[in-house]
Nucleic acid binder design. Structure first.
Lengths: 89, 89, 89, 89
DNA sequence: GTGGTCTAGACCACA
DNA sequence: GTGGTCTAGACCACT
């Protein structure tokens, strides 16, 4: 997975930074395809952020196609994460 | 204020039994008018029931006019609990 | 502007309902192209919702291309609102 | 702009004067250790200064170690205000 | 017991 | 003085 040189430091925006960190866990195989992530509330505690901030982070990951969310079920690592997570312009 | 006679032998339906117990707390002044009840999740833990059961119980109390619920704010003891707590059929 | 038959009543989701109402004000000419909307905080008060809910509403309008937002300046009615506000599938 | 009679000969720089006044309130025990200060916007109104000026004032107090700020929570009187409130140059 | 929405109100970045 | 982010914690919808 390619990491852009123009973004060496994590985002200054907290929910993006959290999203990036989870994305890295997925990319590294720590979170495997199809696996269920911890509950958003638990992730919020794990990252030391509020539930709302964690929700924004997962929203980012959803938009990136890295996770899929099912109401009442959980959030799961998406089947085929798109290569163009960062558009390769 | 009158406490319902049906309390001595509580309802066999769990969420009604829980609702009755909360109603008794309101009637006894343990929960005063205008006071905010504990969060539904906390009440569920307190009564040792599932969240869904607790939600049904609060729905019953809402129908009885004993509490009012405000999304995102909480549930509160209603101003003037109606005399016909049990519908006057 | 076409209104889908499958959505006769306003959205049950509050921020969408608010967004729809603002959209209607734009469509009706109440809010003209290029005009600045009231501050989001004022709109929140006007609609009787929290600031966060209003922000979600404006986010919806932004996604629909109906408004543009400038940090520190305000939010404005977009130049050419797209015809396919509701995709005509 | 001249203002405060409240300090003997206050700083000519407005935001420093405001910071000094808040510092005096902390020193006098009016604002106790661990207490939350009023919101920055409220302080701005209270002192009759702009929000930016108030932000500069709180920045000064932060640098002096008199207050700590938590995003989304508030600003609080620091635990142990250093003796060298004015840097010992 | 999960994700989804909402409230109230704080600080932050910008023009 | 605007929009942007964040906190803390509530109720709602769904499985």
């Amino acid at each position: 997975m390619r990491v852009p040189e123009f973004a060496p430091q994590p985002s200054q925006v907290l929910y993006v930074a959290v999203a990036d960190h989870v994305a890295a866990r997925i990319a590294s195989g720590d979170l495997k395809v199809g696996a269920r992530l911890p509950a958003e509330r638990d992730l919020a505690v794990e990252y030391g952020v509020s539930y709302v901030t964690m929700r924004r982070a997962t929203a980012v990951l959803r938009e990136r196609g890295l996770i899929v969310t099912v109401h009442g079920r959980g959030t799961f690592v998406a089947e085929s994460p798109p290569a163009e997570t960062i558009e390769d312009a």
